[in-house]
Design a protein around this nucleic acid. Sequence first.
DNA 1: TAACACTTGTTTTTT
DNA 2: ACAAGTGTTA
Length: 782
Amino acid sequence: MSIFVPMQKTGKESASVLLDQLNDAQRAAVEFCDGPSLVIAGAGSGKTRVLTYKIAYLLEQGLPPFYILALTFTNKAAREMKSRIAELVGEKRARSLWMGTFHAIFSRILRNEAEAIGFRSNFTIFDSSDSNNLIRLIIKEMNLDDKLYRPGPVHGQISRAKNSLITPAMYAANEEILQYDRMAKRPHLFEIYQRYQNRLRSGNSMDFDDLLMYTNILFRDHAEILEKYRNQFQYILVDEYQDTNFAQHLIVKQLADIHHRVCVVGDDAQSIYSFRGANIDNILKFKSNFNETQIFKLEQNYRSTQNIVNAANSLIKKNSEQIFKDVFSENEPGEKIEIRGAFSDFEEGLIVSNKIARMRMEEHASYGDFAILYRTNAQSRIFEESLRKNNIPYRIYGGLSFYQRKEIKDVISYFRLIVNPDDEEAFRRIINYPTRGIGDVTVGKISAAAALHQVSLWQVLESPLTYNLDINTGTARKLADFQSLIADFIDKNSQMNAFELAQEVIRNSGIAKEAYEDMTPEGMSRTQNIQELLNAMNEFVATRQEQGEENNQLVDFLSEVSLLTDQDTDKEGENEKVTLMTVHSAKGLEFDHVFVVGMEEDLFPSAMAKSEMRGLEEERRLFYVAITRAKKTCTITHARSRFRNGVTNPAVASRFLKDIDPKFLSTDSQLGGEISYPSQADDFWGSMRAERLQKQERSISSPNRVTPVQRTTSTLPLSKEAKELEVGHLIEHERFGRGVVTSIEMGGNDRRAFVEFESAGKKQLLLKFAKFTIIGSTGNNR
DNA sequence: TAACACTTGTTTTTT
DNA sequence: ACAAGTGTTA
């Protein structure tokens, strides 16, 4: 049975014209619409193309846009897909599609159905720092050891529970989990979870994971509501399915359970979010979860050169769990992947920025064609410096997003409290910001009274007498002032638009005054940020008015903002800049020239992931993602020493470099080309590090702390050969063969020799690494 | 209560 | 190195 009304040619493009623009595999995937389908899309194989054309195809078949649910991984992906669909079928139809992230779509649905699960539709959404703050507070209230119970890990555990749909009650009843917590010396976790969840609920708020968990609870407990959305979402598409978690999987499963018209797209080789609860089994076992699943494989890579594709293939082959596929490229063979070993992280920065400058001239590339990808955000700094020195414009993604900044969170907290006065986190944030003489003691009293009477902090503030708040008259006056300030805003919220109200808030709350008086550079920048927030609100309000939606502006603005990431905010005029970002955030993007930097043990793969096989395989997939972002060239760098956490540590090249078939690599290195494949030098570093770690451990208990070695590298004894080496010597190098030493340089503690090799040309050798023998002298040494 | 110095952990990735 | 959290002083 087909749900589709007879085909009608409404748009400029008919369905057949759409299909003409696809290859066979893509077309097959687009055309199959009458059952569950799994599209395994290799890197660069036109996954997004399939999704957009499939949606356009469905629309062309006559399916109304609001019957289609399309779930993406980021807001940006949704936006881009929407605009591409708009080009195919027109703006109007594209706009009515239900397209967005799981979190965005289901927060919208939860707002509509909030009453059914005991919330009000104006609930606030906690970001992870809000969550951590609340957890920290609960730990303190429970008098638990805050060394054992840290907000981050505790939140992580709660998050994992929620993503597996384990409610606090289920958690407390699960002997296995309790046993695990006892072993981890955290027997009270279940209680923290319980209290945390109660607090969120009494503040009419949800964290990220709640959006998914409560959607499941909503569907589980309200058959009629589930039925309603099942009927509405006649066709469901999910992008990046390899990165969905159990809660997300179950939502999709339930919505698609009757009609089975669901298409999930993903690549198991690119599953990189298990730390967030993503379950690679969702895609590996999709076939067994949905009967009669059709599987389509997109294997032709249109993005990268053959060399890049082949190199990436040889890498990912080292993983055990995966769906077989044969990704290939018919583009030109292209250049080999270049591996460069740097002496230090500082030099790594120079190598990369120099190469960018050079390639830009030689290949007539634009800065926007380059990306520097790293494992951790902390690595960005060194590249920023070297790029700045070279006058290369760049743009950093990630790190602290605009909406995470303190001044922005403070202002936003006013909005949150206006929309939802029960929001405890917002309340605590601003009750004394700007300072109005209400300190910790008073807040503590309010909090205690609220807990005693099972009401929110705001309710206590509204009628302090009712809840026997024990405060002096001066404090009572201040509290009343604050209360009427917010009450006044709440009142105004129904009279003016969100932008006007925001201006009012800035003016009347004292934020404006404080900002005005603070003339420090940091203060000025804060003021600027607040102005930027106002601009964003103005734009939001204008857009909404254009679309004829005047109501609930502030709620919707907050909702949108709390689910926004830095990735989503694309600024104008940022095209001519080198992109710096983590590999994670590069997912789904592509660049002509990619630099994958910091390929070192304990960094990539990260020290955390090493212990488990699964973790290691995920890191390898992450590396795979990094390489496959490149269209034309890929350069991989690593440093032999790295400055981290205030000290310089020796670093060993990543084991993953060995996983790539050497025939796709070029190892032309100015440092003697010594990729640190396991060698004597590495063993040496290895033992050095082990020793150092032991020392650090000991130093924790000992009062006279062992000062960490500042420049460990200098302690490496030079070989006899290296010490004796002089200008004019003829040497035989392990890799470069014969050469003459032209000069020797003392770079700090590091002796370097410049050598003219017979076949390999001019090279710079670091004497403590280089492996060579002196075979004679040319006689012209001084 | 507010401002300041001191201590502590942090660095894996993010909707 | 750095930020955030904690404790101390005025």
